[in-house]
Write a protein that binds this DNA or RNA. Structure first.
Length: 211
DNA sequence: GTGTGATCATCT
DNA sequence: AGATGATCACAC
């Protein structure tokens, strides 16, 4: 948190220069650039392994894009939803709960060129009972649909805080999975995302409490 | 293909 | 304009 607070108010191009990173002109082909930059700056163990960013602390690091008006602009990817039957059967054992147990949200403010965006005050968040109840209800509904093979019924309109959306290189990437009748069907990979309405509300609550 | 990091582009 | 569906880059 000390390191995070020290970055608040600085521009991303300052930070990039300080750690020797190259600033892209836009994010079209560098969608993960900001997240990777903050991982490096804060000493997260950058890797592609499915573990928390701060492994010893059990804390996940997520950047949160805010518009110039300070509102969250995008949904937040949480984790993919396995279609191979390996998904947890309970919320307690789920990867979504594991991922969201402790998150360091770092707001990134601005709509312009990446280098000009500002780092906001980081917020270390653990879901409170109300937030966890909402997440649990969504997860139980969505994961049950996947477990029942109801892939045709699944779309991004379901879920209050969590939603399921495609998560793949392209829409043509398909995998075999079980359908409703136990038959083999093809379906695109999907992932759990947090709606911007949810992160917007949690950030406003936490910043108000912290002030 | 799966995982990490997300934003883009289009539709309503 | 906000939300949904599609996509980009990289490691393995």
């Amino acid at each position: 948190m000390f390191r995070t607070t020290a970055l608040a108010g600085r521009r991303l191009d300052e930070l990039a220069a300080a750690i020797g990173a190259t600033v892209p002109r836009d994010l079209k082909r560098d969608k993960g650039w900001i997240g990777t930059l903050l991982e490096a700056a804060l000493g997260a163990s950058a890797s592609s392994r499915p573990v928390p960013d701060f492994e010893a602390l059990g804390i996940e690091l997520k950047t949160l894009p805010l518009g110039a008006d300070g509102r969250v602009r995008e949904s937040t990817f949480v984790t993919s939803a396995p279609l191979d039957g390996s998904m947890a059967h309970t919320w307690e054992a789920s990867r979504v709960r594991e991922k969201l147990a402790a998150v360091l949200w770092v707001p990134i403010v601005g709509d312009g060129p990446p280098g000009e965006r500002l780092i906001g005050q980081g917020v270390l968040w653990r879901p409170d009972p109300d937030e966890e109840a909402v997440l649990r209800a969504d997860w139980e509904e969505l994961s049950a649909m996947l477990a029942l093979g109801e892939h045709g019924e699944v779309d991004a309109r379901r879920g209050v805080a969590l939603q399921l959306r495609p998560k793949a290189a392209t829409s043509s990437s398909l995998t075999w999975t079980l359908g409703e009748e136990g038959d083999w069907v093809q379906a695109g990979p999907v992932g759990f995302y947090l709606r911007a309405t949810f992160t917007r509300a949690l950030l406003e609550r936490r910043l108000r409490l912290a002030t």
